[in-house]
Design a binder for these strands. Sequence first.
DNA 1: TTGTAAGCGTTATCAA
DNA 2: TTGATAACGCTTACAA
Lengths: 361, 361
Amino acid sequence: MVTLAEVAQHAGVSPSTVSYVLSGKRSISEPTRRRVERAISELGYHPNAGARALAGKRSHIIALVVPLRTDVYVPIMMEIAISVTMTARSHGYDVLLVTNDEGPDGVRRVAASGLADGVILMDVELDDERIPVLRELGSHAALIGLPADTTGLSCVDHDFATAGALCADHLADLGHRDVAFVGYAPQVYQRHAGYAERTLSGFRERARERGLRILHRPCEGSFESTAGVLGRILDDRPATTGFVVQNEGALGPLLSLLRTSGRIVPEDASVVALCPEPLAEQNSPRLTAVTGPAQDLGRQAVELVLKRIGGATTPEVTLLTPVLTPRESSGPAPLTAAPARRLPAPQTPADVENSHAQPLP
Amino acid sequence: MVTLAEVAQHAGVSPSTVSYVLSGKRSISEPTRRRVERAISELGYHPNAGARALAGKRSHIIALVVPLRTDVYVPIMMEIAISVTMTARSHGYDVLLVTNDEGPDGVRRVAASGLADGVILMDVELDDERIPVLRELGSHAALIGLPADTTGLSCVDHDFATAGALCADHLADLGHRDVAFVGYAPQVYQRHAGYAERTLSGFRERARERGLRILHRPCEGSFESTAGVLGRILDDRPATTGFVVQNEGALGPLLSLLRTSGRIVPEDASVVALCPEPLAEQNSPRLTAVTGPAQDLGRQAVELVLKRIGGATTPEVTLLTPVLTPRESSGPAPLTAAPARRLPAPQTPADVENSHAQPLP
DNA sequence: TTGTAAGCGTTATCAA
DNA sequence: TTGATAACGCTTACAA
């Protein structure tokens, strides 16, 4: 193993000079720098990470804590992980992968040992148990997702409320009046994953403003559950012509089911998805969708932690604006909607929202 | 920050004793151990990772090099990454995420700097440019995937040849005679990703043994390309009743298209997928599929590197046996196949394989 | 502009 | 069974 001392000797300079050439923390004369750089490449020198961390009090590692759950759309997690890694690299940092099965202890371990200089938490819950650890250790951190209490924390997230609102606007603009919102599984809401609720309430509010009648249905995302949900929607609100789909798993099934039931998309029914671009593109018809910039999430998170590692103390909360891309799955509301009829069966209140429904004809 | 020396003082023992209590590398009297352990928890001591790495010549970190490409099924990559991380943790190791955009230099960097004690390479290509670096540095490594030359290397991979063979067997058992193989995009074969070819040749060989007539078609995986591919298959071999689908992206489109063209699965056509379980389950009908154990891939890779880090020098190549799970998408070949007719258009030889076709009637 | 030298917090060797 | 103590390879005042 080649050490800095050996490089120094080879170049005929002192060890500190080599160190400074490497770190750029003091000015070096051109000839000296060249001699050192030659020695480095001739000997194939690579600074020892452990020694650097020990002496410099900085591991140049960021820990990324990823969820184990698979009810999040996995490719997006991966996209974030990759953008985190690449952004970190561009700042001279490496990324340590920590899985959430260690729970709060995982965070404690990597932060307290100095293994990582900072921590990025993915899939943050409203009342996340890892946050107290962060506060206790005074760790440098950035959260992807918004907890209930962001005091003192740096966070990035999609602006889910706007995402929901964009869906309502788009369908309202197209003349739809009865719109169903196909949500996530009940567990997701129960876990109080903020994004699910923020999207829904952004949608709800804008729907109210635009005078839409809406129906919110949680959905597991499997074919069967989607079939059940769609069936109940069409039973309860036969005049429904717009669908906003939050649960990506329900997209494929929903499209099949609409087709099977003889409804053409977008002539008879419009579908707006809350999902990543590739997913929207690979369906048939291609889906009008609201998408947030996943890569920016990772990039920003890294920049937030690095700022904190660099000494910044002001927490920042950034919400990234999503974009609605119209594709083939949405169009003007049909002029003659399916004949509205009275709801056939009793409804459970938890299940149905007649938010601001005008009385059915 | 609490140091080992402080713990020693607090416990009234020497620093080395504390170190040995932690590492278990020499026997400690029960009372001493208890005093030390109490001091550790009272002070909230966490050993400094950098110091440990420097003094111990072991970072307790494994680097996992992941591909950037998205033509691999991403959830599987994630599953592997997670099983790698968890297995590593269970051995006291952490995992550093390295993206392949750094190329061979990324491997060099983490290995030569002592940042990582070992390296796991994902998505290994037949002639992978990272392998020479491994050899040059004498790094401890495990590969997920089989390169052309495995000399001196430890590797794990699925037994893709068997996977292909299982598909052929299954369809042959069900009485199918004309089977189409919907493959990956041409680039994948050109990149010589071993798995694509090994699956295909395993399939081919078994198909020959079983007397199947096969047609191999590369496919991009998009709806359009799948439509094109299916169209050509049905043109060229109207009697085709079995489909083996290697490109997961083509699955959804293929099922839709078969339905659209009036073919019921599995009554008129059987589909066997080479894909992960969740994907097979979430289609409708649920797909008969051949699946390899992704988690084992990660687990084994970790165990292989750790063996090498521990001093083992014998390379091991492990192939994990895939399993075919029959579901709803495959059934007996229809008694009256669509009437065979002469191929309507000239074929490009690269495109079609009449491997061992009997002359058409 | 460059050099000297004192740490950084462990591990592990050598003694006791 | 335990204790001193010399590395480990780098960073960074402090000097020159």
